[in-house]
Design a protein around this nucleic acid. Structure first.
Length: 108
DNA sequence: AAGATGACTAGGT
DNA sequence: GACCTAGCCATCT
C-alpha cells in the first residue's frame, strides 16, 4: 500500500456525512493536488472495500462521476440519505456540501 | 519501451 | 453552458 493510497483512504473516511469532496480535493489532502487520476485508481482498487464512504467523492462540478445509471442511482441515494443537497438530478450543491477538510471560516 | 485506459481538472473557444 | 484540447500519473497490456 503506497502512502498516497493510505492517505486517500484516510481522507475519504474523514469526510463527514452530508458533505462531499472532489477528486482534486482528496488528492490534495492526500499530498498531491494533481493526483485526481490516482484517486480514481485508488477507488477502483478499493471498490471491494466496504465501509469506505466512496460515495462522498464527486468531480469538480459536483456531479456523480460514476458511469451507468444504476451506480449513479446508488450514489445519489446514499448522499440523499446523509442530507446532501442536490442542485440537479446527479449534481451536488458544492456551495453548501463541499468539505475542505475543516470547518474554518473563510469570510474575512 | 510504447500504447491504451481511467469515477479528473483547468483553460480556451 | 457545451465541446475540445492539454496536462496529469499509476496501472495494465
Amino acid at each position: 500500500m503506497q502512502p498516497f493510497t493510505a492517505q486517500v483512504v484516510e481522507v475519504i473516511k474523514a469526510i463527514p456525512a452530508g458533505k462531499v469532496m472532489t477528486y482534486g480535493q482528496v488528492a490534495a489532502a492526500a499530498g498531491s493536488s494533481r493526483a485526481a487520476r490516482r484517486v480514481v485508481w485508488v477507488l477502483h482498487s478499493l471498490s471491494e472495500a466496504h465501509g469506505l464512504p466512496w460515495h462522498r467523492v464527486v468531480n469538480a462540478k459536483g456531479e456523480i462521476a460514476l458511469p451507468g445509471d444504476e451506480a449513479r442511482f446508488t450514489q445519489r441515494a446514499l448522499l440523499e440519505e446523509e442530507g446532501v443537497l442536490f442542485d440537479g438530478d446527479y449534481r451536488v450543491d458544492l456551495v453548501q456540501c463541499r468539505w475542505d477538510g475543516g470547518d474554518r471560516e473563510k469570510d474575512g
